[in-house]
């Protein structure tokens, strides 16, 4: 019988991060500790420049902390080399950014298959089936073969959500995923992201400026000046 998975998809303790150099050096994260539970949607809110996105990139191993510890699925990652961090991103983390960041030369289907191809866990036919299933789940079943460049902004962001879910990651990190969408599409993307993640038992950590959206999350963590505030 396999061991029960860690209820915490990711966790960090006492994270410090400085950005810039010389006189412009800024202490962006000041000893931040945080945990994200599987099946739970957590919103990180706060004014611009308070360190929300920096924290998200630290948790997603896109950036290295100057001090502090990060665990993903119980695995210590803060001291890991680039290869281990990249492999952990591939297996355990899905990203959704404010801008969709799709590869416009590829179709919607191919974009969703990109992380799967890298991980190589599924056979090509199974990858295609899963990508189609995910695109259908986000309401793009009829546009799987359409070039990403020929999709609307809302559709592109839905493809980005499907892509983030492709490798069944433990955690989905979303940096203002609806920041660039109109109200209708914002609602749609938020619903898709949270419902699919909850259904699959994935942790969602979402940075947002939108108080309505934050209010619909399971937990809200306000930040200011590089720290969580009570």
């Amino acid at each position: 019988m396999p061991p029960a998975p860690d209820p915490l998809a990711l966790r960090c303790e006492n994270l410090h991060r400085y950005l810039g150099g010389g006189e412009g050096r800024v202490h962006v994260l000041r000893g931040v500790s945080f945990a994200a539970r599987r099946g739970e949607v957590c919103a990180i809110v706060g004014p611009s420049g308070c360190g929300k996105s920096t924290l998200l990139y630290q948790l997603g191993l896109l950036d290295r902390p100057d001090d502090g510890q990060i665990w993903i699925n119980g695995e210590q990652m803060s001291g890991a080399d680039d290869g281990l961090r990249t492999a952990a991103r591939s297996r355990h983390v899905g990203f959704v950014f404010q801008f969709h960041f799709l590869l416009l030369e590829f179709t919607a289907l191919e974009n969703v298959m990109l992380p799967m191809r890298k991980l190589g866990r599924l056979a090509p036919a199974a990858m295609e089936a899963r990508a189609t299933e995910l695109l259908t789940a986000v309401g793009l079943g009829d546009k799987v073969r359409r070039a990403a460049a020929h999709l609307s902004g809302g559709e592109q962001q839905r493809v980005a959500v499907a892509r983030a879910l492709a490798n069944e990651p433990s955690a989905i990190l979303a940096d203002e995923p609806t920041g660039n969408l109109d109200a209708k599409n914002s609602d749609l993307v938020f619903e898709l992201l949270t419902s699919l993640a909850r259904r699959n038992g994935q942790a969602v950590v979402m940075v947002t400026h939108n108080p309505e959206m934050a209010a619909r999350c399971d937990a809200v963590r306000p930040m200011r000046d590089g720290q969580f505030i009570p």
Partner: peptide, 16 residues
């Protein structure tokens, strides 16, 4: 650069 960054975020290594 953005596409490269997004590929890296998906697990593509520097070698890739």
């Amino acid at each position: 650069t953005r596409e490269i960054a997004i590929l890296r975020s998906m697990g593509y290594t520097r070698r890739d």
